[in-house]
Computed example of a mutant assay.
Amino acid sequence: MDNFTHILKLSVGTEAVEDLAAWQASARARGADGLPRHVTRMWPKREAEILGGGSLYWVIKGVILCRQRILRLDEVTGSDGIRRCAFVLDPNLIRTNPATKRPFQGWRYLAPADAPADLSAKRAQDDALPPELAGALADIGVL
């Protein structure tokens, strides 16, 4: 049994993996260390499991399309004085086999057994399918 877990998160307003990459390249999405981060209100209770090898899997338009290794969790305090959690991420976006996912709010834990596999090195260089098409093909078992 794996001793780590992943995080599943919707990438709201993103149309494709390239949009997520562009957002993360902006100064707004990076910390002082230059690494991309995603800030959330809730601190994960399973922190040790996440930091033991977990990734943040991104859902884009209803389909899991990529992941990023979670390097650490940083505490950040907003201008409102509220403590938040920043998932500090490896800048490398790793494409995964498409897997459909219903909408949800916030983030969810994702067991390693339920995480889609990474695309093979050969397939990772293919042109990306639109998320809707990738999701439809995944639903019928073609991808």
Rank of each mutant, 00 (worst) to 15 (best):
L110Q: 05
P116M: 11
N3M: 08
A48C: 02
P103W: 14
D126V: 07
C85Y: 10
W107N: 05
G53Q: 06
R123Q: 07
D126F: 14
E49A: 13
A115Y: 11
A48L: 04
D127K: 15
R84V: 05
K9N: 06
I7W: 11
R123I: 07
A32M: 09
W43F: 10
A32G: 08
L65Y: 05
E132C: 04
A138M: 10
T14G: 00
I50F: 08
L10I: 10
R41P: 04
A99H: 09
R72K: 12
G135D: 03
I50T: 00
D2I: 01
V142M: 08
L35F: 15
A48I: 02
C66K: 12
Q24F: 14
E49N: 10
L93N: 04
D114Q: 13
L56W: 06
G31F: 05
L20F: 15
H38N: 10
P112R: 14
I64K: 02
L89F: 05
R37I: 04
R102Y: 09
D19A: 13
G31V: 02
N3I: 01
F87N: 00
A121M: 03
A21I: 10
T14C: 04
R37D: 09
A22Q: 09
R72W: 02
G62F: 02
S11D: 01
I82P: 00
G13C: 07
P130M: 13
G62L: 01
I70S: 02
G141E: 01
